[in-house]
Amino acid sequence: QPHRKQPSCSAQGENKVVTLLLGAEPEKVCAMPDPALPDSDIKALTTLCDLADRELVLNISWAKNIPGFSSLCLSDQMSLLQSAWMEILILRVAFCSLPCEDRLVFADDYIMDAEQAKSAGLLELHKAILQLVRRYRSMRLEREEFVTLKAIALANSDSMHIEDVEAVQGLQDSLHEALLDYECVHHREDPRRTGKLIMTLPLLRQTSAKAVRHFCSIKQDGRVPMHKLFLELLEANV
């Protein structure tokens, strides 16, 4: 790889990869909790699992639209998604929750405070995601940074089953480069901002692992109906 020279930007100063990632963002999904069911922990968890399943379908199309992702072999595309799917879901919840104090925006029609999280048995997870939200809020995370960081989380998922390590490294490099270029143009005042953003990824990984463990135990309980894709990916992480 050559050394970085000028940022690869359009005449308007926009990075091409970041622009493509903004265009690839999945549409918003509504949670639509079943009005016929009385409020309960089961209802809350059913709503979340159903929402996650529908988002996962959209996230697979999103991944295909990350510049360079679909050049990877199918097996590596699968391995990255199997490792990073929960990080991608959580990062989106964290970004959508930035305007809200102490509440998590799972969807526009499904916003959860600590009390509701406690009733659903999700208080620990709620706290962990809020820690991430506070990190991003203190940095004033921008949409361009969010979409790029989400793609980086996918490319950097540390799956143990990658076949073409060089190709995945190439994808990581191009996304990293895009973030560096964006920060170089938009945040010249803080040369460490890219590093600060990347340094939030361990907390995202930690939170995601916590969420996967929690939903695996819910799955074993067998009281919450789960759709097939959600189940398939939960099983991939065990």
Partner: peptide
């Protein structure tokens, strides 16, 4: 891979891949 057939199918069928 057989265990992950939904992911496999969705990856094969989803549209508009973008490559630089």
């Amino acid at each position: 891979k057989e265990k992950h057939k939904i992911l496999h199918r969705l990856l094969q069928n989803s549209s508009s891949p973008v490559d630089l």
